[in-house]
């Protein structure tokens, strides 16, 4: 791993720290003369979520990312609050998916990639050499753009995570499968055919199955990479409702192309452009009153 060891890795963030944003992408920083972009953000956050405090769940500091010699992320620093939905928006190729995949180290699988900077989950560096990637990914689950059911039965798909984790108790597995499917709002549709192939489900059902499968591993954070982009409007609406439900118990980060979707489901939004985190803030504020010219151009549809 190419993580730069820093003192920060052991410097746990105070869990009660009130969520606060200090985003300084290099370009905006230069433009703004290091002036903090957002002010009074905690109150906005408070209004949006109706809760008093939002501890930071994931914090990234000065993250750069490279595919070979090709740098795709530039100095991204971002805080993601717990038990809320954070959306990453931006035109395709802007690095938002790459950034998302850094949060549970999915990029490790790809040869020839490296990064600098830190990704802290509850204050500890996920790229630290002592971190067990398997454990990390159990805690930070991921749902992909294309639904990826395993060519097994519905039951075996959901039970996969607990089973590989060593759970053998049949009753316990049944219970997990049922609760996961219920949470993913799929139970009523499939409860009578748990042993039929997951490949036979519709696209929307498959995606909810993948969400249920992730829930079954009991994660804290769920990363979603354009989870609804391949779905029809009705299925999309169901997935969005589900996301809205899930945020009560999970920290959710969602990458989306669809700005309306971001506006509908998320409390906070981060706008990426050409590998740079341009702006982040309360979703409503960002969409109604963006600070940056690029953000405004994007959300008003002038490019992208």
């Amino acid at each position: 791993m190419n993580s730069t060891p820093t003192v920060l890795t052991t410097n746990a963030i105070d869990q009660s720290e009130v969520f606060r944003v200090d985003v300084t992408g290099p370009r905006s920083a230069a433009a703004q003369g290091q002036k903090p972009i957002t002010t009074a953000r905690p109150t906005v956050a408070k209004q949006a979520t109706g809760e008093v405090t939002h501890p930071v769940k994931i914090r990234t500091k000065n993250v750069d990312f490279f595919y070979g010699d090709n740098q795709v992320l530039f100095d991204v620093s971002l805080d993601i609050p717990e038990k809320s939905v954070t959306a990453f928006i931006g035109p395709s190729g802007c690095g938002k998916s790459t950034f998302l995949r850094m949060l549970n180290r999915m990029n490790d699988i790809i040869d020839g990639t490296r990064h600098t900077g830190d990704v802290l989950l509850e204050g500890s560096d996920v790229y630290d050499s002592s971190v067990d990637v398997v454990l990390l990914r159990k805690r930070v689950g991921m749902v992909f753009q294309k639904s990826t059911p395993f060519p097994k039965s519905i039951f075996d798909n959901i039970a996969y995570g607990p089973k590989v984790a060593g759970l053998r108790n049949k009753a316990k597995l049944n219970e997990i499968v049922e609760t996961s499917l219920k949470r993913a709002a799929l139970w009523d549709e499939v409860k009578d055919r748990l042993n039929s192939s997951a490949m036979a489900l519709s696209g929307g059902q498959q995606q909810r199955l993948c969400i249920a499968r992730t829930l079954a591993t009991d994660p804290d954070v769920i990363l979603m990479d354009e989870p609804a982009s391949a779905l029809d409007p009705a299925s999309t609406a169901r997935v969005e409702d589900l996301i809205f439900e899930l945020k009560k118990n999970y920290t959710i980060v969602i990458v989306t192309h669809n700005m309306q979707q971001a506006a509908r489901v998320s409390q906070r939004t981060a706008f990426f452009f050409q590998g740079v985190l341009v702006e982040t803030g309360d979703t409503r504020a960002l969409f109604t009153n963006p600070t940056e010219k690029q953000t405004e151009d994007y959300i008003t549809g002038r490019f992208g």
Binding site: R139, G141, F144, T148, V164
Partner: peptide, 27 residues
């Protein structure tokens, strides 16, 4: 076997053994 299946398995907290023997080989 598509890489997306492997990634999905890794994202559920699998070791390489789990991915190979429980997902890739069965598929």
């Amino acid at each position: 076997v598509p890489r997306s299946l492997r990634e999905a398995a890794y994202a559920l907290g699998s070791t390489k053994f789990d991915v190979s023997t429980r997902v890739v080989v069965p598929a």
